[in-house]
Every structure is written in C-alpha cells, then in structure tokens.
C-alpha cells in the first residue's frame, strides 16, 4: 500500500514535479502564446492543481480497494508509527515530571502520586519496549508467569528485578536527585547508583 500514499520524499518529489510542470505551462502560455496574466490565471492554475489532487485522491480509493492487504498488519514498524511512539514516550515522560512537580508543590499526596505515576510508568515501559522492537515478554510479566509455571524463568528475567522497587527511592550520591528505586543510573547526572 505504498504506491498512492508513497513515502514522504516521493510525494514531495511528485508534488514538486507537478508544480514545475504547471509553472512551465504557464511560462509557455505567457511567453510563447502571449497570454495576459492576471489574478484569474493564477486562480485557474490553482484549480488545475486541485483537480490533479482530487483525481489522485479518487485513484487512491480505487487502489486501496483493489490491492489485497494482509488482514493483520505485520509487526514491521513503519517510520510513521515509530514517530508516534517516540511522541508518546516524550509525552509520558513529561507527564511523569509534571506529576512529580505537583507533589513537590503540595498539590498531590504521596499515595495519589504513586497511583497515577504507576499507570504512566507502565504505559511508558510498554512504549519503550515497542520502540526497542523486542517481541519477548515484559520482565515483570515473565516473572509472574514463571511463578505460575507457565514459562521457564529464562536468563533475561534474572538480570532485571523490578517487582517491588517502585515505591522505594534511590538518592544519587553525586547530585542528590531522587531516583526511582529500580533505577541503576541517575536520571539527572548519569552517575551509577548504589542499589
């Protein structure tokens, strides 16, 4: 389904080609045929471009109907969806910071802070994992499943222990920033934290 939509540069290139063609035609009319250029001429030119655009839109509908798509979209991440995920990650991280600030200003109790922050963090972890493109399970989920005997507790689950660390606070020895309990490096200065 890449043809009518095209990649961004392809669409831009085509647009530029159409615009250049139109300008060329206009120049030809003016200089070769001695036509008079006035506002209406430009209006007509714009209408012409819009017509091309409209016909292309109609073609795209037919094309989409005609091309058999895989019913379940493949896992391969397009550039666009990657951008959206990055966007979402940025927003989630900012929301977390804002929440932290709220607590600092005395507008939010510790309990509320933890409850809301936990949901944001879960979502952020999901997004980051999607960005990394790893198809394997979330470590915490793996640990849970392992406990129930559904999956063998394999190597990757051992390294990260995240289960009970959400509430604890880990103060950076260098800059005294409060980090989450499960953090291994300081979010401000990057120094390694003592667990």
């Amino acid at each position: 389904m890449s043809e009518p939509r095209g990649s961004f540069s392809g669409a831009a290139l085509r647009g530029a080609a159409i615009a250049a063609g139109g300008l060329g035609l206009l120049a030809l009319l003016v200089f070769a045929a001695g036509a008079r250029v006035e506002a209406a001429t430009f209006g007509l030119a714009i209408a012409g471009i819009a017509l091309v655009f409209a016909l292309r839109g109609l073609y795209a509908v037919a094309y989409a109907l005609a091309s058999p798509l895989p019913e379940a979209p493949a896992a391969a991440m397009t550039l666009r969806s990657r951008g959206e995920l990055l966007d979402e990650r940025r927003r989630l991280l900012r929301a977390l910071k804002e929440l932290d600030f709220d607590r600092g200003m005395g507008k939010l109790s510790q309990a509320d802070y933890e409850a809301v922050a936990a949901t944001y963090k879960m979502r952020a972890i999901e997004v980051m994992r999607a960005l990394e493109g790893t198809a394997d399970l979330h470590p915490e989920l793996r640990a849970l499943l392992a406990a129930r005997g559904a999956v063998q507790a394999s190597a990757p689950a051992a390294g990260t222990t995240t289960s009970d660390a959400v509430v604890a606070v880990n103060v950076c020895p260098k800059c005294q920033t409060e980090n989450d309990g499960d953090a291994r490096f300081c979010k401000r200065c990057g120094a390694e934290l003592v667990a």
């Binding site: 714009i46 109609l58 094309y63 798509l69 379940a72």
Partner: peptide, 24 residues
C-alpha cells in the same frame, strides 16, 4: 483493514474534491 484503508483514502478524497470545488 483493506476496506478501512479504502475508507481513509475516501476521506482524503473528499478533502481533495472540496479543495477543487473551493478553488473553482
């Protein structure tokens, strides 16, 4: 997803057509 995609393209097409009508 084929029909949904065609629907999205149809939506874009209505915009393209409206732009054409407006330019007219």
């Amino acid at each position: 997803s084929r029909l949904a995609e065609a629907g999205v393209q149809g939506l874009y097409a209505t915009f393209a057509l409206s732009a054409f009508a407006s330019s007219l």
